[in-house]
Design a protein around this nucleic acid. Structure first.
Lengths: 256, 256
DNA sequence: ACATAAAAACGTATGACATACGTAGTTTTA
DNA sequence: TAAAACTACGTATGTCATACGTTTTTATGT
């Protein structure tokens, strides 16, 4: 009967692992390894080589321990992933108490975007349930504050927060994820540019009128894209700004 | 030297597989198996038992063939996934030629949502590059039409389409994905309700004021939620409507 | 007609991986 | 001071994608 067997609900273990301020008063040898240590090593690996390079064996050998020793501190790889996500999320940004909705949301969105940018593997971790980690909830809380402050009802604020979270996550997935851990193809990496090129033959104005039109117009201009390192990409900013326009109009009508 | 070895760019193979109207004039025995057949079997499996139940062995045995025979028609599992995604996407909905932006977008969003609802595994397929399948591009094209029709510039339409795609995908991931292929936990499935309950102890108004407030307000009302089977969930509809408000205001200002 | 080369189906083999289980050693508590 | 609980470790198992070789089938060039 080792620890692993007296598993109460997997849920309990998740929560305990994510929240508990390590109990530590038990018997046994002094642990030379902690869950946090493992999670940090795992994050380092995922950051460097992508999620598909993350194996229990790799983590263990990076830490100089035997593979199975990890399981004394982490119930399963799935659980480890959950911990990694919350740890990597870190503390949410400070949005300034100012009740100004737009800049607060903009900052929150930019911070989340930056998070996905620096930990692209976050986008690949399968979401099995509502966020339950303390950090993830803190991010949500921070976003809800300005939304409630702007006069949205509880349900509306929840919906708006969901919307914003979803946009950033989805946009990152579509336009950012592919950069990381690129599968190389027989040695030569496949770039997006290469792809677009190969596609242009297939995307005829006949079958895809709107798409072809947009593509044509885009390759025409093509000058703009100053874009600081951690600023919002234009594609994301436009959508968020339009959404905020809508939210502001909504609250204006309500309070007015 | 079998077929597998003369691989040109993996890209070419993807595109060929997705687009080519099967050439078929070669030598060899009449194939008793086709890529499409394989993809459909795979989709059936993923629909029924989730992505993690999808193995090449399972597909083969379902079809009554040896595992390795699949590789005569599909270069790799990754490639098969790409094909599955495009096939499962199917043809985009008809939005009616009407130039009315809002209902068109609403219908498109609802259709995409329904797609994720019936093929939840779509949300788990890692996105390695821009969509390149004919069906996926068709969906994009369909969405771009009303956006361009409403007077958005090419870049704006592209950004708006990205935004909408991302919202639906992200929202589905956050609030829908977890329903599918639920990992059971020692026999008893872990429900979302169970989770929320366990969390309410941890989410104190002290540490998470906004979150606690929203949660309190939500459990207070709680009456609404008529929601037809394929209608948009309220959480998604609110965000989309606010976004459309913003878009309409934007174009109004532009054309006015 | 026939030889040949390409491609299909199949079986076996390999190497990665998560993780179950047993053992030996260590530390705290009774 | 003995037992209980827990650590680290090694080995073993089962699953998976997929490389490779063999046999069989069929269209093509002679």
């Amino acid at each position: 009967m080792t620890t692993r067997d007296d598993r109460g609900s997997d849920l309990q273990r998740s929560l305990a692992l994510l929240w508990a301020g390590r109990s530590r008063g038990k018997r046994g040898p002094r642990p030379r390894l902690t869950a946090e240590q493992i999670a940090r090593a795992a994050i380092r690996i995922a950051d460097a080589d992508g999620l598909e390079a993350l194996s229990m064996q790799r983590i263990a050998s990076d830490l100089g321990f035997a593979t199975m020793s990890l399981y004394n501190h982490v119930a399963s790889k799935d659980l480890l992933l959950e911990v990694m996500v919350d740890v990597a999320a870190g503390k949410p940004p400070d949005l300034g108490g100012a009740s100004d909705l737009r800049p607060a949301v903009r900052r929150w969105v930019a911070a989340l975007w930056a998070g996905f940018r620096s930990h692209p593997w976050l986008l690949r971790v399968p979401l099995d349930h509502t966020p339950i980690g303390p950090n993830q909830l803190a991010w949500l809380d921070r976003l809800l504050r300005p939304l409630l402050g702007a006069g949205l009802a509880a349900g509306e604020a929840r919906a708006a927060a969901l919307h914003l979270t979803a946009v950033v996550r989805g946009t990152a997935q579509i336009s950012l994820d592919m950069g990381s851990a690129h599968k190389t193809d027989g040695g030569r990496p496949r770039t997006e540019a290469e792809l677009v090129l190969a596609l242009s033959d297939l995307v005829t104005a006949d079958d895809y009128p709107a798409l072809a039109a947009v593509h044509a117009a885009e390759t025409a201009d093509h000058g703009a894209e100053p874009l600081g390192e951690d600023a919002l990409p234009a594609e994301l900013a436009f959508g968020v700004d339009r959404f905020l326009d809508g939210i502001e109009a909504w609250t204006a009508e309500r309070t007015g």
